[in-house]
Design a protein around this nucleic acid. Structure first.
Lengths: 202, 202
DNA sequence: ATCTTATATGACACGGTGTCATCTGTCAAT
DNA sequence: ATTGACAGATGACACCGTGTCATATAAGAT
């Protein structure tokens, strides 16, 4: 978490700093990003950066969290629009992500191609925030129409969630790594979801 | 790839160096590993390291490749033993991995918790080596008993492979991140495979 | 004995990180 | 108006790891 001084910053300065950090993290993955570049772009002295953030990671995970919050919102609203149909929601969500604007996609690419567990769990923190570790999961579980799913208990629902997340993330990675065109990536993702739905074994 | 000088090295020196590198990569993930530590442990001067490897990554991916080769072997033999039954093979393979000896597990943990796309694709290079990018995939495809699988064409088989790999890797990550005991991890993996087999939708 | 080619070595330049002593600005109390 | 206190700003600097390079050494070949 950024330090209090960061949140106390006047809006415009904060915006400039966020923009500079985002540019750097869009340019290269976390491991190669440099604080020096961020402060140059933001026009602030080195010491100030450490006044606001613990370190590079701190700034990165702040941005990542912001991004995740937006996606969570988006996912929930698509899920509601689709009357709780999980699979059609996944497709629409997938499509909406890969259709983002250029700069966002660079940021995403660096995230997905360097998806460590720490990043992934932040990402999956769509499923819990500060207050209640499971509040988000429960919200989503409540929104999903479970009658359409082939499950018998709560545990299987959670497990299914993990499977879908794993396959979805992997599909994003595939898209970015091989630089697939959107239509192709979406077609492939559709096939994966169909296989998942109908089952892999006879 | 390590340089020729590395392969020209007398066996004992090579062994010492490999051991030192493996220790370092077992201690911390790639991004935190330091060449300085490796050369200290191996008792060689700094310049020599660069005589053998391009850089840290070069050494790491060499070790990773060695590891993958062994696993490929192991997987194939389990698959044959199980008469091409993909799912029972996956379970047995999963169990055999998590039952490895302590030091190997540290190495694996650092790999799985920092599984970037580059690492994953090396890992999945179980499916192609220098000569023929698809030879391994074809070998596995040939060994698998496809009558038991719910697929209609080659493309779906490949897709299914990706799904299973995604879920399996994710399951390893979960085990290492949450430090699950072996039995629990295996139970969870079993449930995931069962869900995959029977399908997620009604 | 000399030349050639492969390998070994460690000092060093470079670049990035995080710290810290010092400076500045603001605001409330006297 | 003066002072004190505190939050924040600043940039020089110590530290550390990397990769290079000029030089030293060894092993063959002629």
């Amino acid at each position: 978490m950024p330090k209090i001084t960061f949140f106390n910053l006047p809006e415009d300065k904060k915006t400039i700093l966020i923009k500079a950090a985002r540019e750097e993290f869009s340019r290269v993955p976390l491991s190669q990003a440099s604080i020096t570049n961020i402060i140059k772009a933001a026009g602030i002295p080195r010491g100030s950066f450490y006044q606001y953030f613990e370190d590079k990671e701190d700034a990165f995970f702040f941005l990542l969290n912001e991004h995740v919050k937006e996606n969570k919102q988006r996912f929930a609203s698509i899920l509601i629009k689709n009357n709780g149909d999980l699979f059609s929601t996944m497709l629409e969500f997938y499509e909406s992500i890969i259709s983002e604007e250029e700069e966002n996609l660079h940021f995403l690419k660096n995230i997905f191609l360097n998806m460590t567990h720490q990043i992934e769990s932040t990402y999956a923190r769509s499923f819990h925030d500060n207050q209640d570790r499971n509040s988000d999961y429960n919200m989503f579980a409540g929104l999903v129409d479970q009658k359409k799913l082939n499950i018998t208990n709560e545990q299987e629902l959670a497990c299914m969630g993990q499977i879908i997340i794993a396959v979805t993330i992997r599909s994003f990675i595939e898209k970015f790594a091989r630089e697939l065109p959107n239509e192709e990536a979406l077609e492939h993702y559709k096939m994966e979801m169909e296989l998942l739905k109908r089952g892999l074994a006879k």
